[in-house]
Write a protein that binds this DNA or RNA. Structure first.
Ligand SMILES: [Mn+2]
Ligand SMILES: [Mn+2]
Ligand SMILES: [Zn+2]
Ligand SMILES: [Zn+2]
Lengths: 127, 127
DNA sequence: GGAAAATTTGCGAATGACTTGCAAATTTGT
DNA sequence: ACAAATTTGCAAGTCATTCGCAAATTTTCC
């Protein structure tokens, strides 16, 4: 595992919030080329060490957000995103396996992935 | 309501599947400029006549898909997308209000929108 | 209906996230 | 340490989407 790879994985693991490639590329403590950051995030996601989702917010546009995913596997999370302060709230590990299976049975398709997230205004920003 | 607006709304209403701005712009029977299509889709969504979501598929990249939404209001749908044939299956109207409310109570945030969709291989493409 | 005001359209250029080709640098296998 | 395989940085490219602006359409008001 290369230096860049390790550093990017550590940054992911350390971050409480999902981050974009751009955020990591601009992080002074990392200072790797954006192409390197993008390529390594892809790599880490393939490996199952990261998970990502695409989110659009009017202020920051459309970007893919990454978060750390334990090597142990199944810890798939979903998030709430505040459109004011742009922070994420971790809704915890996904609890929809049952519903997914029901749908797979009903429609006879095979689900390989699912996307779920919420947007709105967080408690702090309402006040 | 302008000619373009009406035509784009009709195209949406007529389509069984969610469509992208590009698909509509390239539809020969419409032949409006892409900027016009994009602007009117925004407009229709603000009005509540359309709903959209952003979906990434390896073959077609990241695009926003639009579908018709009855003026009567709450008919919010979710979809399954086949990564082989790129067709969508309508999973029916959203049934997560209860869960949403539970989250709002738990975290004291206000949900303004939610995104949920599945990707995988459809019945026909498995065969 | 017709003229002026308000909105929308088409066109071309810009934007911004993300990708890619390629030569140099790093990492890996022995 | 040496050669082979992989990764990196840089610069240029891609592609959905947006934007400025002048011309065309739609709306407002008489
Ligand atoms: Mn945001
Ligand atoms: Mn597709
Ligand atoms: Zn907030
Ligand atoms: Zn299919």
């Amino acid at each position: 595992m290369t230096k860049a790879r390790k550093a990017i994985l550590e940054a992911l693991k350390a971050s409480v919030q999902p981050v974009t490639a751009m955020m990591l590329a601009k992080e002074p403590s990392l200072s790797y080329d954006q192409a390197t950051v993008y390529r390594n995030l892809h790599y880490l996601e393939e490996l199952g060490m990261a998970q990502s989702f695409i989110l659009h917010c009017s202020e920051h546009g459309t970007e893919r957000y990454y978060s750390y995913r334990g090597a142990d596997s199944g810890i798939h999370h979903h998030w709430f995103h505040c459109e004011k302060c742009h922070r994420f709230i971790d809704l915890g590990s996904c609890g929809y396996d049952e519903q997914m299976h029901a749908w797979e049975k009903k429609w006879d398709f095979t689900i390989t992935d699912h996307t779920f997230f919420l947007t709105g205004i967080c408690s702090a920003c309402k006040a």
